[in-house]
Design a protein around this nucleic acid. Structure first.
Length: 779
RNA sequence: GGCGUUGUGGCGGAAUGGUAGACGCGCCGGAUUCAAAAUCCGGUGAGGGCAACUUCGUGAGAGUUCGAGUCUCUCCAGCGCUACCA
């Protein structure tokens, strides 16, 4: 995943990109065609905030950050395709995004509507549902407000089913991410039932997953934003109710107001009351429910509070109420005796016939709101006429450039005040018009950058031939924090573009690898001030501050963060330990998908390993025999397997194992062909060191291809065969592969350890798993 | 509450159903050094034994199997996501 140019590379970036770099270098050595790009997710709010704070311009701030971070990445000597570099804030990127917007619009996948949207009062912009966490803005943490605004949306809901189904085929994605996406899409199967309201002469549509409990329905509840509320109460009363709802302290407390309406029960000859209730979500289903208190916890609570009847329709004990499990239907003439699933099937059939309802699938996912009331983003290519109508521009009218000269100090979106940019004459109608001042959510930028990487100079967004040839991305590496946002949006984009451009690609990322975060111990003074690790020294068993000599308390290891100051700077680490040691350490201590604790001992140990390898190749002597060749061959095979599995921590273990073995036997390979093999396999992990050593030993820095493995050398004939009695290990014996069971048993029975155990016993059975184990069963 | 995921030495972690603890860190001995760092050699799951050796041991309990860290079920704990989703 490409980074946001915040100013500096941090250790998380280093880990992310080193993992990718090792893969890329390995595949290049294998002769594979590798695309290993880098770019910048360069639009977004921090630039605007920084611009105001530091009296600069978002563009200048962003571009200078990019320059700085690029320099830092280059210090890491990552093998990146810099010719593919892109920044989403540059015209040559976002103009093509405007084309894609037009494509989406023409395909009916972008539309504008009035909607109750999430408003972040601090960032002064709308947020997508995915960007609201616990009712708070994902960046600011501010309580999100509801506002009714006219907004652009992408119709991700059209793809809900495909996005859900597609997850099953993403075998190389972590289960965790797939689960999160499944939950977010939130498919449920049930029925939509029509309830007739005689007084206003209309139906109320209600979605339920439990149509089998229809006979137990004793009330209806709708959301405060439901149409029938607006139709039956005046604005003042609605506001009053809304305020009452907002006053509730306990989020789960149920509140309801009875409307002067009642609904006909769709089967029984009775009417049930209609409430406005605070627990009914207006964004799910149609914003209305029927309450079956006997078999739903919320309905039960509500019914008790407002003394509504509770009718049991599934067999259970009274004290079990509300009972939500399966059971035999009762008190339900058409369904009595049936179990839940049968009852659901039957009642839906009945509704189909009577016209009172039908089977319905419902999704939690909502359309993606992409309008942002901010300056630093991709302008939406739309103009508005004085009568309020709008026109989406033609591609020939692009690009709509983001003006540079704006006043960011004012209130709201700076584009609103940029008159000479905003006011235009429509080229088609010659009428006066105003440009759309909202910009696109930055997640739109990142939803297709991997496509643009294929050809960042192309004069259209992409070349379908290249897309079909190279996509999906084989290996995609990044943090898990994008499990829903970026990774879901990108999947949607890929599918939408597939349908617009008739592409052959269904998914953007074939394999997803989520790397773990980097943690570090935290340090605090007695005044609760955070202290950076580099400012802490150990003295007489105490930790003290280098600067002030205050005593420092050590806290738990937590994710590196500027606020807790428990960070180490990549620049300093590179300076002190070098590229290779840094690379080794970020992959060595933990599997790459788990968290890694940064420690001084750890990075020092990695440094020592690089010295040791250097030293090894400077020494001479020893006899190269078959065992040496075999150990090198095994090394090649293990490293390869572990790189392919992202088990990079095991690669480091393989390195230690190899050198432990060679040094123990005092075999120093020097400029032997075996050294070539070893150095080639080490190259993806330790590019700098191995290049130097290779040059010294072989007078060239041109690595050959990744060595092909001689399978014969991987065969191990010598064998320590475990001998079990009753499945418990008794001893091991040295033998060779392909031993004869009969002969080996004879010798086993002579062993004291075995004799002692089987004396006076009868051997019932001997299980010989050839070359693996022998298990003797006695009675 | 729901879903997912993880539980293995002092620590990070290895183990296609077949010798649990590879490899590293730390620690303990020793060599080298005036001394330290670095380096090198040896040891290091727990209990018992002078020893050969022996018993126990992968969160708990059951099951499948000749054999379970690994598969199944039921719990427990941590982590993550989600949460009035009808």
């Amino acid at each position: 995943m490409f980074p946001y140019p915040s100013g500096n590379i941090h250790m998380g970036h280093v880990r992310n990109y080193v993992i990718g770099d090792i893969c890329a270098r390995y595949h290049k050595l294998k002769g594979d065609e590798v695309i290993h790009p880098m770019g910048w997710d360069a639009f977004g709010l921090p630039a605007e905030n920084a611009a105001i704070q530091f009296q600069t311009h978002p563009k200048d701030w962003t571009l200078s950050n990019i320059e700085n971070m690029k320099e830092q990445l280059q210090k890491l000597e990552l093998d990146l395709d810099w010719h593919r570099e892109l920044a989403t804030c540059n015209e040559d990127y976002y103009r093509f995004q405007q084309e894609l917007f037009i494509d989406l619009y023409n395909k009916g996948l972008a539309y504008k509507k009035d909607a109750l949207v999430n408003w972040d009062p601090v960032d002064q912009t709308v947020l997508a549902n995915e960007q609201v966490i616990d009712g708070k803005g994902w960046r600011t943490g501010a309580q999100v407000e509801k506002k009714n605004l006219s907004q652009w949306f992408f119709k991700i809901t059209d793809y809900a089913e495909e996005l859900l189904k597609g997850l099953d085929d993403l075998e190389l994605w972590p289960e965790k991410v797939k689960t999160m996406q499944r939950n977010w899409i939130g498919k449920s199967t049930g029925a939509e039932i029509k309830f007739w309201i005689p007084k206003i002469n209309r139906f109320l549509n209600i979605f339920t997953t439990r149509p089998d409990t229809i006979y137990g329905a004793t009330f209806i509840a709708v959301s405060i934003n439901h149409k029938i509320v607006a139709d039956s109460l005046d604005k003042k009363s609605i506001e009053k109710i809304r305020n009452n709802f907002n006053l509730v302290n306990d989020e789960k407390e149920k509140l309801g107001i009875k409307l002067d309406l009642s609904c006909k029960h769709p089967i029984l000859d009775k009417e049930i009351p209609v409430y406005v209730a605070n627990f009914v979500l207006d964004t799910y289903g149609e914003g209305a429910i029927f309450g079956c208190p006997a078999h739903d916890e919320r309905d039960f609570e509500f019914a008790n509070k407002y003394s509504l009847p509770i009718i049991k329709v599934i067999e259970c004990k009274d004290e079990e109420l509300p009972y939500t499990g399966d059971g035999k239907l009762i008190n339900s003439p058409k369904l009595n005796g049936l179990k839940k699933d049968e009852a659901i099937k039957k009642i839906i059939e009945y509704f189909n016939d009577s016209g009172a309802g039908k089977e319905k699938i419902n999704y939690k996912i909502r359309d993606w709101g992409v309008s942002r009331q901010r300056y630093w983003g991709c302008p939406i290519p739309v103009i508005y006429y004085e009568d309020g109508s709008y026109r989406v521009l033609d591609k020939s009218e692009l690009p709509v450039l983001l003006p540079y000269d704006v006043n960011l100090e004012g209130k709201g979106n700076a584009l609103l005040n940029k008159k000479n940019w905003r006011e235009v004459i429509c080229t088609k109608t010659k009428k006066a018009a105003l440009r759309e001042t909202d910009t696109l959510d930055t997640f739109v930028d990142s939803s297709w950058y991997y496509i643009r990487f294929l050809n960042n100079k192309f004069d259209k967004p992409f070349d379908p031939k290249e897309v079909n040839k190279f996509l999906p991305v084989d290996k995609y590496i990044g943090g898990i924090e994008h499990a829903i946002l970026h990774l879901l949006y990108s999947r949607f984009f890929m599918k939408a573009l597939r349908d617009i451009y008739d592409l052959k690609v269904d998914e953007p990322f074939k394999q997803l690898f989520t790397q773990g975060m980097i943690t570090h111990k935290t340090y605090k003074t007695s005044k609760n001030e955070w202290v950076m690790p580099k400012d802490v020294v150990s003295k007489d068993g105490l930790l003290i501050s280098k600067k002030t000599s205050e005593i420092i308390q050590e806290g738990p290891s937590e994710k590196m963060s500027k606020s807790k100051k428990n960070v180490v700077e990549p620049d300093e680490i590179l300076e002190n330990y070098g590229i290779d040691a840094t690379r080794i350490f970020v992959i060595s201590d933990s599997p790459p998908d788990r968290e890694l604790e940064w420690t001084d001992e750890g990075i020092q140990g990695s440094k020592n390993l690089t010295h040791r390898i250097e030293r090894y190749f400077s020494r001479k002597g020893g006899q190269i025999d078959l065992d040496t060749k075999k150990s090198v061959e095994k090394f090649v095979s293990d490293i390869e397997k572990n790189i392919l599995n992202f088990s990079l921590n095991k690669c480091v273990a393989d390195i230690y194992t190899l050198f432990n073995y060679l040094e123990k036997r005092m075999v120093f390979l020097q400029n032997n062909e075996l050294s070539k093999k070893i150095l080639t396999c080490l190259f993806p992990i330790l590019p700098k060191l191995t290049t130097d050593l290779y040059t010294t030993l072989f007078k060239t820095s041109n690595f050959k291809m990744w060595p092909s493995i001689d399978r014969k050398l991987l065969i191990v004939d010598k064998l320590k065969l475990p001998i079990q009695i009753q499945g418990k290990l008794v001893t091991t014996i040295d033998t060779k592969k392909g031993y004869s069971e009969k002969e080996i048993l004879n010798s086993i029975y002579k062993l004291d350890k075995v004799k002692n155990k089987i004396v006076d016993k009868k051997i019932v059975k001997v299980i010989n798993v050839q070359n693996k184990i022998i298990n003797i069963i006695i009675n």
